[in-house]
Design a protein around this nucleic acid. Sequence first.
DNA 1: TAGATTGTTAATCGATTAACAATC
DNA 2: TAGATTGTTAATCGATTAACAATC
Lengths: 205, 205
Amino acid sequence: MAKRPVPDIVVGRLPIYLRELNYLVEERKFITSSQELADRLGFSSAQIRKDLSFFGEFGKQGAGYETLFLRDKLSEILKADRVWDIVLVGAGYLGHALASYGGFLGRGFRIAAIFDNDPDKIGRPIGGLVVQDSRELPQAIQDNGWQIAILAVPAAAAQEIADTLVASGIRAILNYAPRILNVPPGVRIQYIDPVIDLQHMTYYL
Amino acid sequence: MAKRPVPDIVVGRLPIYLRELNYLVEERKFITSSQELADRLGFSSAQIRKDLSFFGEFGKQGAGYETLFLRDKLSEILKADRVWDIVLVGAGYLGHALASYGGFLGRGFRIAAIFDNDPDKIGRPIGGLVVQDSRELPQAIQDNGWQIAILAVPAAAAQEIADTLVASGIRAILNYAPRILNVPPGVRIQYIDPVIDLQHMTYYL
DNA sequence: TAGATTGTTAATCGATTAACAATC
DNA sequence: TAGATTGTTAATCGATTAACAATC
């Protein structure tokens, strides 16, 4: 029951809560509290209760939260209660690792296709899929209605491919290329650059 | 000249500035402004000036910033003006991709060694290195004085390995396992979990 | 019931932005 | 110089936390 737009920073924490709830369920802990979650995640219990309160009342006073119930609620809110097709662009080492990653399925995502522009890679099988020619990318996106892409290409190629993706209907991009991408409003981007994270830490060493 | 502890959120943006400055230098743009940087990064110019002001005065009124100079200053601040050895734990697909990633060198990092506990993987060459036995990990960390580790192991093994790493002297961990890690104060952790980023975006779809 | 924990409000804390004097 | 842009201050904005009534 979100009356007002939920702060993006709150949305960003929900997947972390969801992941932890899944671990709790795995451990057969069917009841938890904001305090227990806070301890496990390193957050404050007040923050967890506040975050959840943007979306509804999921707990019982004095009793805490049912993990199965809260897990399902967060799944719904994040639209993680279905399987999303992802189109993967880039069939290098990283693309290979992502295509072979067992952690997507079971958490709501499936690599549906892999594209690359390297003739040596096109046609080769990777993790149960065959690498397709990048030139067929726009048509394939439109035909299949894919909305999510993972970019695992060299930095120099990232912006151009992003333009193609967006023009073809992609609305969310997980970008592994070490580049800020320019996209129109309404298209979401998340960035993963391990060097950024490493340099963040070396500051403190 | 940081008088007070610099907010961590500011430290976290410095690597992004540094990366963009390197692109500017590549493009042979030797002068820039907070406004140009802001446009390229999608930040506000005030924020960039404020962030930099925690560390000194790097620009000239009316003229802007010399990209080479500012790049070098940020490199120093982030300790990216040297090459850090990284110990990589986990020789699966992801470990393979990381070991073969060309983007570390040139940005201050070098995979110095790879460890795994799988007998089938130990002894095999990956990206110019030979996978070593995890049991030798503590000794190797101590002998070489490694301070940074990348964790690319299954979630179930992550905490135990993190404990070993920390006990052996590691002070910064880039964790690809989808788990919050418990470490003593003084040890930095950064998390990379693509599913978290994907679920953050599906909320808006 | 008594004890515990939620959901929520108000207070605090921190980060971002606007604005402008300083000055190159 | 005139124009431009920094560095910094103060104001605004937003996020986190503390506290507690509600209530299971």
